[in-house]
Design a binder for these strands. Structure first.
Length: 348
DNA sequence: AATATTTGACCCAC
DNA sequence: GTGGGTCAAATATT
């Protein structure tokens, strides 16, 4: 994690460069017969970019990188973690409730094409419930890993839209993914494809390449070691997604960037954080999430000491902990995704 | 047909 | 009893 600072710095620079590029694009689109939508879109992107840059400069963003961790107790009451004993019997839902680690992440969604909603984090989620929460303006969505039945993956997440800022989604993850993720990315791509069939159809071959590289990468990742910020334990985990910051945003938003745009950068191909149909809070979204702390998500986890170990491992299995990713030698590629914008004409 | 989402009911912790 | 979380039948989508 030593290079976390570096990484943030670079990301910050990238964001600024990106912002500049976007402004240029906007400039171009100001005169000609450009549509309003295009201009608004550009503005959105610019704002998004700057917002991220700013958030990176904020104190909270520096250390643990702004990860919004929820103190375990605040999320759900208390004794949840207390009984850490055994969750071995995972068939019993209620027991699981007590012991599964959880952590919260806040995600900002870029309101691009008028749509909005939470992003995909690289896993395939299936919605299994929705509930109106007392005092909350928006209902909370409940998702579980689609591989639950197949592989017994017990990971779940809750998506709660923020009252004050509807563009923010609070995502509470619970449980770690035990499913083998070699398969998770590909379906993710597939679903992304489904959502943007027109744009993507032209790039089937590229996608296959992508999938291949994903597989390779995943295999690679399988042996990944990650340090959590909680302590020094290192964990290897089976799956991980590499959230790309603005890429996500721009990529999903308005489908401006065809997959091929990312083909050449490793990151682009491995970042599965496209939209996933199943992840949308209410299914109506398909937008571009900008993780507020995507450049470094410090997670805090539920902290019952007894569960600490599990929590930590869970944290590593989570998808959105870029900061955790940093131990991974991605330096060479990690920023590429932010740079498709350097392509002249990437907007047309 | 298979898979995903919706939604009311049910269960459990508080 | 209440609220939050999950189940599962009905329904929608692919």
């Amino acid at each position: 994690m030593e290079n976390a600072g570096d990484w943030e710095k670079k990301t910050l620079i990238n964001e600024l460069i990106q912002g500049r590029e976007l402004v240029r694009q906007l400039q171009i689109h100001l005169d000609p017969p450009s549509t309003h939508e295009m201009r608004e879109l550009l503005i959105e992107k610019i704002l998004c970019s700057y917002e991220k840059a700013i958030s990176m400069l904020k104190p909270t963003a520096l250390g643990i990188s702004g990860a919004m961790l929820e103190s375990p107790n605040s999320v759900n009451g208390s004794p949840l973690s207390a009984d850490s004993g055994k969750d071995q019997d995972q068939k019993d839902v209620s027991k699981k409730r007590k012991t599964l680690p959880r952590w919260t992440e806040q995600v900002r969604v870029c309101l691009g094409a008028g749509l909005e909603g939470p992003l995909d984090d690289g896993y395939n989620w299936r919605k299994y419930g929705q509930k109106d929460i007392l005092g909350a303006k928006y209902p909370r969505g409940y998702f579980r890993c689609t591989r639950r039945n197949v592989q017994g993956c017990l990971a779940t997440k809750q998506v709660q839209r923020s009252d004050e800022d509807p563009s923010i989604f609070e995502i509470t993850y619970r449980g770690k993914h035990t499913c083998i993720q070699v398969s998770h990315l590909i379906p993710a791509m597939a679903s992304a494809r489904e959502q943007e069939p027109k744009q993507i159809n032209d790039h089937h071959h590229e996608q296959q390449k992508q999938q291949q590289s994903q597989e390779i990468l995943l295999n690679f990742r399988t042996g990944l070691k990650v340090k959590t910020d909680l302590d020094t334990q290192e964990h290897t985990f089976p799956s991980f997604s590499f959230p790309s910051t603005s890429t996500e945003c721009l990529k999903t938003e308005n489908h401006i960037f065809p997959p091929s745009t990312f083909e050449n950068n490793f990151m682009g191909s491995i970042s599965p954080s496209f939209i996933s149909p199943a992840t949308s809070e209410s299914n109506y979204f398909s937008v571009s999430p900008c993780r507020m702390h995507s450049y470094g998500g410090g997670h805090n986890l539920q902290t019952s000491e007894s569960d600490l170990t599990e929590i930590i491992s869970a944290a590593t299995s989570v998808t959105n902990s870029p900061i955790l990713d940093l131990d991974f030698p991605l330096d060479a590629v990690e920023f590429d995704p932010n740079f498709p914008f350097d392509n002249p004409g990437f907007f047309t």
